[in-house]
């Protein structure tokens, strides 16, 4: 459905994304997760034919986003980070315009407007001026706009940003409903959001894909293991074996002759036992420190950015 190969985009000399490759199948709900500035919006803009890529290719339903962008644009619905609303229009007027510009046949425009009004629960504000609506309603109008032409693919850039917790829950529900009929790419810097809606996650960091995994895979690797580095002064041959023999240790990798990367189960106090072992065998500890896993680091990054404690708590690890 969506196939992205080696996509790169430079803003001047600065790369926004570097060689991104991924695939999204029909009916999937995929989350783009990453801190601000990771390249989420840039990738989405390229998929929506708003920006051309510097190199690499992206195909949507078999059409190249650059060569056959008109076809691609018929297949996608896009909700940018700031919903593209005209504040002086009424909700219905705006949705009619969106339908017409997205080339919904004239006879079907009214039906399309009614359909999205109902889906996004906007009937009560249909005649109101968009500029006077609350942020939550505006966001829903933005979402309504993106699906007015019943596109196969919905690309939603941070659809819950700036909403209050109740509105966030509403929007999430709405997206979960939509997921039954559309292929959705969703971006967020909020982990719990992704965990609730998406089945697969693409983690972007500094313009590169840090990980692509199913949620189960991510959370299990996140919760079950931690890694630390042991550096010793007196290197001996059997260090690796001895370390591996410890309880709870999953793997030991010798990075250099005197430096070992130990992966062990979470909270198993392995660090203490490694230290004790090092002392007993007089390996001479030069350094023993926890290395946060790259994923974990990113997650930390991400979760620290959300300032809604309740959301974070019930989100992580579920």
């Amino acid at each position: 459905m969506i196939e992205v190969k080696d996509l790169t985009k430079f803003y001047g000399p600065r790369p926004a994304i570097k060689g991104i490759t991924f695939k999204v199948n029909k009916g999937e709900v995929v989350g783009f997760l990453g801190p601000n500035g990771a390249g989420k919006s840039t990738t989405m803009n390229i998929l929506c034919c708003i920006l051309p890529a510097s190199s690499g290719s992206a195909e949507i339903c078999g059409y190249d986003v650059f060569e056959e962008s008109l076809e691609v644009r018929k297949k996608i619905g896009y909700l940018p980070e700031t919903p593209p609303l005209y504040p002086d229009m009424t909700v219905t007027g705006y949705l009619k315009f969106a339908a017409e510009i997205r080339r919904v046949p004239a006879k079907k425009v009214q039906a399309a407007v009614d359909r999205v009004l109902e889906k996004c629960v906007l009937q009560e504000v249909r005649q109101r001026i968009i500029g006077r609506l609350s942020k939550g309603f505006q966001q829903r109008v933005g979402l309504a706009q993106s699906m007015i032409h019943d596109p196969e693919i919905l690309i939603l850039d941070e659809p819950t940003i700036g909403l209050d917790p109740i509105q966030i829950i509403e929007i999430r529900k709405l997206i979960q409903d939509l997921a039954r009929e559309h292929t959705i790419i969703l971006s967020s810097h909020i982990l719990p959001e992704i965990t609730q809606i998406c089945k697969r996650v693409i983690i972007l960091n500094e313009g590169e894909i840090a990980a692509v995994d199913s949620l189960e895979g991510l959370t299990s690797s996140l919760n079950k293991s931690e890694r630390f580095v042991l550096k010793v002064r007196n290197s001996q041959n059997n260090i690796q074996d001895k370390l591996s023999a410890l309880d709870n240790v999953i793997s030991v990798k010798a990075e250099t002759e005197d430096q070992f990367l130990i992966e062990c189960e979470m909270n198993s106090e392995t660090q203490d036992r490694v230290a004790r072992m090092a002392l007993e065998n007089s390996w001479g500890i030069e350094e023993l420190k926890l290395v946060s896993m790259t994923l974990e680091e990113i997650f930390l990054h991400l979760t620290l950015e959300e300032h809604e404690p309740s959301e974070v708590k019930n989100g992580v690890g579920t």
Binding site: K74, A98, I101
Partner: peptide, 12 residues
């Protein structure tokens, strides 16, 4: 007002 992206992502 960022509405330009609506025009650009439309099939026109």
């Amino acid at each position: 007002s960022k509405t330009y992206s609506l025009l650009l992502s439309s099939p026109v």
